[in-house]
Design a protein around this nucleic acid. Structure first.
Lengths: 221, 221
DNA sequence: TGAATAGTGTCTGTAAGACAATATTCC
DNA sequence: GGAATATTGTCTTACAGACACTATTCA
């Protein structure tokens, strides 16, 4: 009576060489067997406590990545998006520092720049575009980009991450004022040895309470 | 292999007496027959072109309301939210001026203030809270509240709508500056005759291109 | 004319960006 | 010391809120 295919898809995003990339995998099954697509799969009612749980399971199974920042994006549906029939995909996006993907070292994961034209099966192109727009939009007024940085980072590194996402240079003084205002970073005793012959930068870490909780800015950027 | 119940629910919101209200209906069937809940129902793969289409169909069937502002909210899922089994609800929120609900005149629709404690079946309480938070959040930096106003309205009326949603008085000059900056209102020749012994206010209408497209503010409010 | 609300002009304080000075490292 | 980048201080500009003045209606 209600034959709807129910799946989850994950847009795994990372920053490499100042470029935002999405992780694609060659599909192991029909439809579109062998074609690069978003990691996704059926919800397993017997093991998943909810769709987010399913997304985490699918992502871990296909890429080896655990406990990323993961947030629901939107749900895509309709009779034509999947050749198997009327389907629903609850889409999530995950943010991970590049070295985590490298370390997981899954050989089938391909990283592709989101700013090149993508050719993807299903409606995965629209899903990726929605995720990128969401990330870039939220970056303007939240701590979201922090999840693309590693465990520890310097303010100049973090500023370059923000700038890569927004696609424009930011005022250094304003950026630092905002980070101070957000009050979510904790300086670490040691210092960055870093890129050579110049003053090293202070290392910071996200305060624990912001490890999985965004900090928002009242007035943006 | 993939027995997931797939439904849509609609949080229909309106403003009456400066108070945000949600529309509830007595359920006609089990589970929770006779209990007030959000309008919702199964996706009908044979007639619905996507979940939004299903939400519009369900809303119209149960309340008689057509073509409201409707936006996807989030998807709720899990084994326990519906006693029938593992389920997915793709939730939408709709904004309608109160007189539209009044005119539709569906006898079973009850309007309840969202700021009173709600007791609702399923996880409808969480869905309503998510919708209210989304509306209030977006109101701070977008034209979203305009959809709670009628076809034509004055700036003082619109300001009262914004103030009701945000729960705090707004600066009149700033508010008008922002509305001008958004450039989405068109003055109408006639004027408000209005509340009696004082200068009448200019009537405005949303420019057609913003009839279903939000206008965003770079710096909020 | 007085009461009431609409609409506008202007001043002030705050916050964002520009600029530049100082700090610290390695060579 | 010189080069390079981090960090901080300060000035300028833009914008948001406060206040008050004018405008228009009805009684």
């Amino acid at each position: 009576m209600n034959q709807v295919i129910c799946t989850v898809d994950v847009v795994l995003l990372t920053l490499k060489d100042e470029t935002l990339k999405v992780a694609l995998l060659k599909r192991e099954r029909e439809p579109f067997k062998g074609v690069a697509a978003l990691p996704g799969g059926y919800i397993h009612p017997n093991e998943d406590m909810d769709a987010q749980d399913a997304a985490l399971r699918v992502l871990n199974a296909k890429t080896g990545i655990e406990a990323p920042y993961l947030e629901q994006l939107a749900t895509f549906s309709g009779p034509a998006r999947d050749p198997r029939g009327w389907s629903v995909s609850i889409a999530y996006y995950a943010l991970v520092p590049y070295h985590i993907i490298e370390k997981a070292g899954h050989p089938d994961v391909k990283l592709v720049s989101v700013d090149r034209p993508l050719v993807l099966p299903f409606d995965h192109k629209a899903i990726v575009e929605t995720a990128v727009a969401r990330l870039r939009g939220k970056s303007q007024y939240s701590s979201l980009p922090c999840y693309l940085a590693g465990d520890t980072f310097t303010l100049p590194q973090l500023q370059r991450i923000y700038e890569s996402l927004m696609g424009e240079p930011l005022n250094k003084v304003s950026f630092r004022r905002k980070m101070t205002e957000m009050d979510m970073l904790k300086p670490i005793e040691g210092q960055m040895e870093a890129a050579g012959a110049h003053r090293p930068a202070q290392l910071y870490r996200l305060k624990p309470e912001f490890r999985h909780q965004l900090q928002l800015l009242a007035r943006g950027l």
